[in-house]
Simulated scan of single mutants.
Amino acid sequence: MVSPDKNQSGVVMIILLGFSDYPDLQMPLFLLFLTIYTVTVVGNMGMLVVIKINPKLHTPMYFFLKHLSLVDFCYSTLVIPKLLENLVVEDRSISIKDCITQFSFGVTCVITEMVMLAVMAYDRFVAICYPLLYTVSMSPKHCALLVTVAYSWGIISSIVLTYSILVLKFCETQIINNFVCEYSVFLSASCSDKHFSETMLFIFANFNVFCTLIIILISYVFVFVTILKMHSASGRYKAFSTCASHLTAVTIFYGTILFLYCIPNSKNSWLVVKVGSVFYIVVIPMLNPLIYSLRNNDVKKTFKKLMNIKIRSFI
């Protein structure tokens, strides 16, 4: 159970140092992250609107992309405003309950995105390897079921990992060299036995990463084999182009995660961890709508039309 701090407020506090080690960079970082967050909100919300109003985008691939954009928007909104606040205020403390809440919703978003990327890989596998069965295999009912599975597993994983934190005991205010409430924050702040929590983290983190990654890899192995068997060069190019955006997003997402996994646990690695975490938490939600929109003319045309309408109405 969460134990209260032995101070007058009776509340255990976490002090997230963030980037306070670099005082001269506080304002430049604030402007940078604010710009990224603005682009993230406009890009992901714009993607939702574009997919909704353009009938050509009412396909399973863009149905999944719509939910991916929603998850990215929620995750960035959960983390970045607090990060921006900590860059301009001296008091960087957050109560342990608020920190756990941020972590809980964050896990839901991250795990849901992992499963959603795996689902999108399966969608490309069926579309290219079994095109005649695509409309049946990816019917609206099946697509809704796959999305429900993604959200449900994200929530279940969040509940389990949050419970593994709630059994820890936090005795006093802790200063943490981080900018977001990740699992490592609670392990560092805990003054009780951490074996159960570390075990649950190891099981769920590895299970989610490697299971979704295996699904993606197997799907694309079959996709590439099918593409290589095509006799038409234009057919191979068209098939590969439909996978390029998703492959780019998957490479960036899992590449960053695996990079963070490989960083040794030492004080010298904290800056690298922060930079990697910034890319994983802040930059990727901004990149996803850009990656998927740049390679699709229908998305670009609809987005430009939407922006022109908004500019005219503003004027």
Rank of each mutant, 00 (worst) to 15 (best):
V136E: 13
T302P: 03
P81S: 05
M114Y: 14
W153Q: 03
I15N: 02
S188D: 11
N206E: 15
P23C: 02
L32S: 05
N86W: 13
S104G: 09
L260A: 14
L68H: 08
V209I: 13
I94F: 00
E85M: 14
K238I: 07
L32T: 11
S266H: 14
V147R: 12
K229N: 09
Y75K: 09
S157K: 01
Y292M: 03
V185R: 00
S269M: 14
F222H: 15
F196W: 09
N265L: 12
T212F: 04
M114H: 08
G255T: 04
R92S: 05
G255K: 07
M116I: 11
V49S: 07
I36Y: 08
A239E: 02
S192A: 10
V119C: 13
V12I: 04
M307L: 13
I128G: 01
P140I: 06
L271H: 05
A127T: 06
C243Q: 04
V167W: 03
L271D: 08
Y163H: 03
F224W: 03
Y183N: 00
L57Y: 14
V225I: 08
T108F: 15
I111C: 04
V225F: 06
N288P: 00
T38E: 12
P60V: 09
R295H: 08
G10T: 10
F259E: 07
T226N: 05
L83G: 01
H142S: 13
E90P: 04
V42F: 08
V180A: 10
N206A: 11
N265P: 01
L290K: 00
S277T: 15
A118S: 15
M13A: 05
L25D: 11
K169C: 05
C243R: 03
T35R: 02
S188G: 07
Y130C: 07
S137D: 10
I257H: 04
L83A: 10
S313Y: 07
M138F: 09
D193A: 04
Y37S: 10
L117P: 06
G46T: 10
I159D: 02
L161E: 05
T248W: 15
L166Q: 05
N44L: 10
I284C: 04
M286I: 01
V275W: 03
N288T: 03
T226P: 00
L34M: 13
M27N: 14
T226H: 06
F259Q: 11
L25E: 14
K97H: 15
V180H: 02
T112W: 02
V71L: 06
C243E: 02
V185Q: 00
P81D: 06
A239T: 04
L306Q: 09
